[in-house]
Write a protein that binds this DNA or RNA. Structure first.
Lengths: 383, 383
DNA sequence: ATGTGATGTGGGAACGGTCCCACAAAGAGG
DNA sequence: CCTCTTTGTGGGACCGTTCCCACATCACAT
């Protein structure tokens, strides 16, 4: 008896002396059952350690209450990816609250295998994280399964996707560094095929251009209105350093976006960097920033005294570094929470879901850039 | 037609003009089917985008090919936990290779809710990661489901568990620092209720004691054999510093094991540390080590010139830090791979599975300790 | 007494597969 | 030509639920 893995509703009903319909009503809570019967069934359930079989239930309900999460990646399999790990964590919590369980897969983007797996009615819906190309999307589209993209790199208007507003984030980063007086920028840009990297870069560059134009305009007005004028002048422009125009902007493209790539890139271009008059380094993600910063530190460059370094993503790692990395936050919590919530609505058949949600980013000022940044960091790493 | 979510085997058979038994044979590959029929069925499957329903299949097979992974944690939900993230990654890959899918849950250890979920025949087996107390184990035991513990903290002999040999690792850490000439040790110990932390600590302390005894013995032999003796003398003992006995060993207990705890602990005891004559700091995991090290660095202490710092776990983060953290590796890959492999055997009904496997650890020498450590690190952090 | 409605309970089809078994057709050996 | 096997196909039970519907019982009003 004890060797039996589990009991069925029929066996439970038999023990309780009722029909399986009645037992079902008591267990599932749908339908009538007299107190007497209810008690008998519950007692029997207790005795047999009865647990309803979720598989059978899913079959008739045509609903599994499972959500598939696929994290696409280039090379290494990475749940421990500092940003995606956070998003997955949030998804896990949000799913739990809504009664869903999560199937997690990591996959190279060209393989459709794990997709197939999920498509076998194993899940009610799909959350796709990160880059994935058209062929994958087209494939998923063929099957009528609700899915949603998080931090993806497609611009397909049919696809529901949640992204952070990387362009605005890039602009804020530029503004932050510019306001701190920097005029020589070295930018480490991750793969431009990535939506995130390319938007962060363009946001940064565009903002820099506009700031510079404004500066020029003010300077000209200053000249036109003559010396000793009371004309409206931007207050920062009174300082000599701020008044100067941007001296140099260099974009160094990295084919990859990991820490190692940051290291490699800076090692290769260290001499150029050292002699170029750069005072600020911006990377399109934290990992690249940290990799590059590590090389600088190892070469005796002081951060932020000699060079300010700024990343993007607000990974926990950045906050733990010495010096703590100034960065731009990505609302991983919002991304994860909403992904599940919206998918849940799609699974429920609702049509009026937003096609695109953008999450705002903000600068997290810390020690790696000039200024008053604090060195705190969020918790991570319990064993 | 296009609005239909999916087609059943019956519909497929109908289109192909065969019975569902025949269609099943073709699709599943079990049993006879003439080339003619086979082709017709496959063509129909193509047309309907037929996918076998995994739920129905699981019901009759009483086999889901799903494995549940539950990561227990104290406070924060953390897949992004640098060590567990790695283990989960490995499990994901290993599972993929063996044809399993992974249900991932993080849970506080007292809640049995996610356990219940898994127990509803949703999975073929369970992998439990990290600390979980007796009540959880007892609960799982009641249901006859194969399960395995990874890096757990129980000593229950019934439970199959995979752990790293933390005691030996602690010893190696002690040896490493001792051999580098350190005689004043400050130890940051994580929660002693954790098997890992307590064994790492005891291994470290015991080894230190033995090394010290040996040193004394050698010194006495040295004295006895008179000056200018050719007696066997440990080569390192010729150096004055090495010959000296251990001067001080302090164990600072941290109630928690995260980065923040390391920071907090060192901030509180900084004065004591500074004036105590310590030249080496060992923490029972990387996070505590990095937290403590960050405080030292911020106070102008040079690592490793003034103090050597050593952690444990070999998290990617340690290798990225500046200075790169010397640490003791944990075979996350082996742990994850074997967890799935052994569980697979248990699911298959095999009885002769090992009850306990210990994985050896080795010192990863890097820059944060005196010596020739290299500063490389493994890749992480692609976006 | 009898219809009527509320209140519980049981029977059985359905979900979408697998697989055992029956059976038809065709080829081989007497 | 008739059995006997081989080979391919179909019928249908079964897995463990849910849920619709039928039906039994009983109180109450007619």
């Amino acid at each position: 008896m004890d060797t039996k893995l589990s009991y069925s509703l029929r066996e439970l009903a038999q023990l309780a002396g009722v029909s399986k319909s009645t037992a079902s009503r008591v267990i599932s809570g749908n339908g009538y059952a007299s107190p007497d019967v209810r008690e008998r069934v519950l007692k029997a359930a207790e005795e047999l350690r009865y647990k309803p079989n979720a598989v059978a239930r899913a079959m008739v309900a045509k609903r599994t209450y499972n959500i598939g999460v696929i994290v696409f990646r280039d090379k290494l399999p990475i749940v421990s990816h500092t940003l995606y790990g956070k998003i997955v964590d949030e998804i896990l919590m949000a799913a739990e609250n809504l009664g869903y369980s999560i199937f997690l897969k990591t996959d190279r983007e060209m393989s459709l295998r794990s997709m197939d797996y999920m498509l076998e009615q194993r899940v009610d819906g799909l959350i796709l994280i990160s880059r994935l190309r058209k062929n994958v999307i087209d494939y998923v589209k063929k099957f009528n399964i609700p899915y949603i993209m998080v931090n993806g790199s497609t611009e397909d208007p049919d696809v529901v996707h949640l992204v952070s507003n990387d362009e605005a984030g890039g602009e804020r980063a530029a503004e932050h560094l510019y306001d701190q007086g920097h005029r020589g920028f070295f930018i480490v840009a991750g793969p431009v095929e990535h939506r995130s990297h390319s938007l962060r870069l363009s946001g940064f560059l565009n903002k820099l251009g506009r700031l510079d134009d404004r500066k020029r305009t003010i300077a000209e007005e200053d000249r036109q209105s003559g010396q000793g004028s009371d004309g409206i002048v931007d207050e920062t422009s009174t300082k000599a350093e701020d008044a100067s125009r941007i001296s140099i902007v260099t974009v160094a493209e990295s084919p990859d976006s990991g820490f190692d790539s940051g290291v490699r890139l800076m090692e290769e271009r260290y001499e150029e960097f050292r002699s170029g008059g750069y005072t600020a380094l911006f990377a399109t993600n934290d990992m690249l920033a940290l990799g590059a910063m590590k090389v600088l530190l190892e070469n005796g460059v002081h951060v932020p005294e000699d060079v300010s370094v700024m990343g993007y993503d607000n990974t926990d790692l950045g906050g733990m570094y010495h010096p703590a990395l100034t960065t731009v936050s990505v609302d991983a919590a919002g991304l994860g929470r909403d992904a599940v919530a919206i998918l849940d609505r799609m699974i429920g058949g609702q049509e009026n879901v937003p096609r695109l949600i953008e999450y705002e980013s903000e600068v997290i000022a810390r020690r790696s850039t000039r200024g008053e940044g604090n060195g705190t960091c969020s918790g991570i790493g319990n064993t």
